[in-house]
């Protein structure tokens, strides 16, 4: 595996359609995730973006970091805009007004734009069965506006609107399981990914793009600014999220679960959490509680995956 990883980079296209000069924070895992996803998407794509970090860092008028057609309109409607793009293209091709060709329609948003304010538009678009790929770049809070909690913020994390304090442990609710919500729409393809596993991410985005009908890829995007960790640990942190079982990498293809990376033994969640300032206040008791929840969730995911393999 290690050796395989070391030489595969040469096989990945050098061409970027999300170009340098973007204003993402130093060590931004989301910019990395977007860059890798764009490699997978290639040229024949139209992206509808929600408001958020990636929109702000890539498009200050009169400039753009995008070399592919890209549209941003509002915060909560990326999936709805993508619906319109997909339907419009389909009709224009049918009526011969533009040439028939494969154009991947992509909607992209952060965790707030996906699991909070944009969930209705996303649910609608998935239910209607549009042929599009939705990419959620999850950095686990509203980072663009200053690290406010979202429904994707993990239990116990201190954010500016779920601050740890004498009467508060930080975020008091558990992270909303967005991939499961997507899968509950019975769409043909759902996956989780993380740029710390770049080839897996690229493969999944490619697969999602090729899937006829709705596809959803949920990408954990480490945010050194919001998670309060050193910028050079971005990739390592993502790996730890996977190796601790906090963010397992899996696919749900036509309802069948498949765990892409399994480990004989999960690392303790503290290996991941101790490196981040947002969890620094957590007591041993709470860390144990989190460990129990992660272990249980991972076991239930693994069971689903092994049931489906049978």
């Amino acid at each position: 595996m290690q050796n395989y990883n070391v030489y595969v980079p040469r096989l990945v296209t050098k061409k970027d359609t999300f170009v340098p000069g973007h204003r993402a924070c130093i060590g931004c895992g989301e910019a990395l995730a977007v860059r890798l996803a764009c490699k997978a998407l290639g040229q024949n794509v139209i992206i509808a973006s929600a408001t958020g970090c990636m929109e702000i860092v890539s498009s200050p008028l009169p400039t753009t970091s995008w070399k592919v057609p890209w549209i941003h309109t509002l915060f909560e409607n990326a999936a709805a805009v993508a619906s319109g793009i997909e339907s419009g293209l389909k009709m224009l091709m049918k009526k011969g007004r533009i040439a028939e060709q494969e154009i991947t329609v992509v909607a992209m948003a952060g965790d707030g734009g996906t699991s909070d304010i944009g969930i209705q538009a996303l649910s609608g678009a998935m239910e209607r069965g549009h042929n599009f790929l939705y990419l959620c770049f999850d950095n686990e809070a509203y980072m663009n506006t200053g690290i406010q909690r979202s429904s994707a913020t993990p239990f116990g994390a201190s954010t500016t609107t779920s601050p740890a304090g004498k009467q508060s442990i930080g975020q008091a609710s558990w992270k909303k399981n967005m991939p499961a919500i997507a899968a509950a729409h019975n769409i043909p393809y759902v996956a989780t990914a993380c740029p710390s596993y770049p080839f897996d991410l690229i493969e999944k985005v490619e697969k999602g793009a090729k899937t006829p009908g709705p596809a959803y890829v949920h990408i954990l995007s480490v945010c050194p600014t919001g998670w309060r960790c050193p910028t050079d640990l971005t990739v390592r942190m993502g790996r730890l999220a996977v190796e601790t079982g906090i963010f397992p990498l899996y696919e749900v293809e036509n309802g069948q679960y498949k765990l892409n990376f399994d480990f004989p033994e999960l690392r303790p969640v503290t290996d991941y959490m101790k490196l981040q300032g947002r969890f620094r206040h957590l007591s041993e008791d709470l860390l144990v509680k989190i460990q129990q929840r992660v272990t249980a969730d991972y076991a239930s995911l693994k069971e689903k995956a092994s049931d489906d393999e049978k």
Binding site: I46, A48, I71, T73, L74, E76, N77, A79, A80, V81, A82, S83, G84, I85, E86, S87, G88, L89, M91, L92, R97, I98, Q120, A121, S123, G124, A125, E127, R128
Partner: peptide, 22 residues
């Protein structure tokens, strides 16, 4: 005909469709 789930999405889908020239 896109039977959207809200008026917000109706207008949003219209943005996408108009933006490709439909």
């Amino acid at each position: 005909y896109i039977p959207v789930e809200s008026e917000h999405s109706a207008m949003s889908a219209c943005l996408g469709s108009a933006a490709v020239g439909a």
